[in-house]
Amino acid sequence: MNQKISQDFFQMVEKMPPFPKSAHRIMELAADINCNPKDLVQVIEHDPIVTMKLLKLVNSAFFSLAHEITSIRHALVYLGLNTVKNLALSIATIQSIPHKNLEHFNTHQFLLHALTTASIAQRIAPRFDPDLDTGDAFIAGLLHDFGKMVFAQFAPLEFSQAIELSIEKKQSLHLSEQAVMGMNHAEMGALLAEKWELPHQLIQCIRYHHQDSQAPLHCAVVVANQISKQLKFGNACNPVIDAFTPHIEGILGMNLSDFIESLDDLSTEASKAKKFIDI
């Protein structure tokens, strides 16, 4: 797998199309001269591919902005509505190979996992640091498993083997990926994020989301990821749910199931995400 990460590979990834529903919605919004900026931000924020590509572009040397852009709202303030709208449109209209649904990897279920992790991370972020930008937590949650999409698209056979190995051995997917491909999705996503010059804290969050860390943003994503899996909001093919680390349990003062109990209305996160996917 390491040998695959060549210039050609990065170029292939750049051609990954957005999810059909968000592409359709972006085209609809772009055709409306009075489109509501809130709607545009929402549709971009709900598609990991459009989000990642937009962040990549606005943080690239091409713009060399004086400030690092960490979220779609941030991009809107710096570049203006029309430029963001047209950037999104140029991403949405990429004609490329369709997303692959593998036997064990369903893109719809994957998106549901990414979106619920994002919205839960956003909601619980202040528990780890009251000053944490909740928009950054949303994006980190949305993109934490981006590497899986890349595997599904460009190494479907090996990725399927890794998923099967995880199910069989009841071991975390990133370990099976490592065994089968010599690389796991966290590293894959981080390499892309690095190559695309995404904000540093986002790269770190993607790379280490299966490891322990003290960083508040990282903690929010790790916890949101376990909650999403525990409540079976979507499915990102990892059968293992990790218990809280002592650090996280120390901050929250309870374990995973008690924490889930303490949060009201978590099912609304799933229904909101489903509603969005089914637009």
Binding site: P37, K38, V41, R73, V77, L81
Partner: peptide, 17 residues
């Protein structure tokens, strides 16, 4: 600000602006 004052995103957007 693209958000209304009672939207939860309002203050974050305002601070970026």
């Amino acid at each position: 600000n693209i958000y209304d004052a009672n939207d939860e995103e309002y203050s974050e957007y305002q601070s970026i602006m």
